[in-house]
C-alpha cells in the first residue's frame, strides 16, 4: 500500500513538473529542444514509477542488478550532463558580461568628465 502511495505522489509531481515545463514553453522561455528534453525526462520518470517492472526489464537487458539501479545510474548521467551544460552556459554568460563591461569602458567620453 505504501508503495502505491509513493507511486501516486511521484506521478503527481511528474505531472506538475510537466505542466511547468509546458507553461515555460508557452511563454517562450524554453526552447522547443529544451521542452522536448524535459518532456521526455518527466514522461520516462512517470512511466518508470508507475510500471517499475519496466525498469527491471531494462536492467536485465543491460546486465545491471536491479531496476532501481538503472534509474539511479541514468539519473546521475543526466545530472552530470546538465551540470556540464549549465557550466558552459555560465561561462558564456560571464564572457558576455565582460564584453559588455569592456564596451562600456572603451566608449569614448568627454575629456573632463571621466
Amino acid at each position: 500500500m505504501q508503495g502505491i502511495l509513493l507511486q501516486i505522489i511521484a506521478a503527481v509531481f511528474a505531472i506538475f513538473a510537466l505542466s511547468r515545463a509546458y507553461l515555460r514553453f508557452k511563454e517562450r522561455k524554453l526552447s522547443s529542444f529544451a521542452f522536448i528534453f524535459w518532456f521526455a525526462v518527466w514522461i520516462v520518470g512517470m512511466v518508470l514509477v508507475l510500471i517499475p517492472q519496466l525498469a527491471t526489464e531494462v536492467a536485465r537487458i543491460v546486465g545491471i542488478g536491479r531496476g532501481v539501479d538503472v534509474v539511479v545510474y541514468a539519473s546521475i548521467a543526466v545530472l552530470f550532463y546538465m551540470v556540464f551544460r549549465i557550466y558552459i552556459k555560465i561561462e558564456d554568460t560571464q564572457k558576455q558580461i565582460t564584453e559588455m563591461a569592456r564596451q562600456i569602458a572603451l566608449k569614448p567620453r568627454p575629456k573632463n568628465n571621466p
Binding site: 565582460t98 569592456r102 569602458a105 572603451l106
Partner: peptide, 19 residues
Amino acid sequence: FITHPINRGLGAALGTGFE
C-alpha cells in the same frame, strides 16, 4: 584611465587594455 562598471577580473582588465 578607463573603468569597468563592475569587477571582471585581471584577465578581463588586460583584455580591455589590448582592445
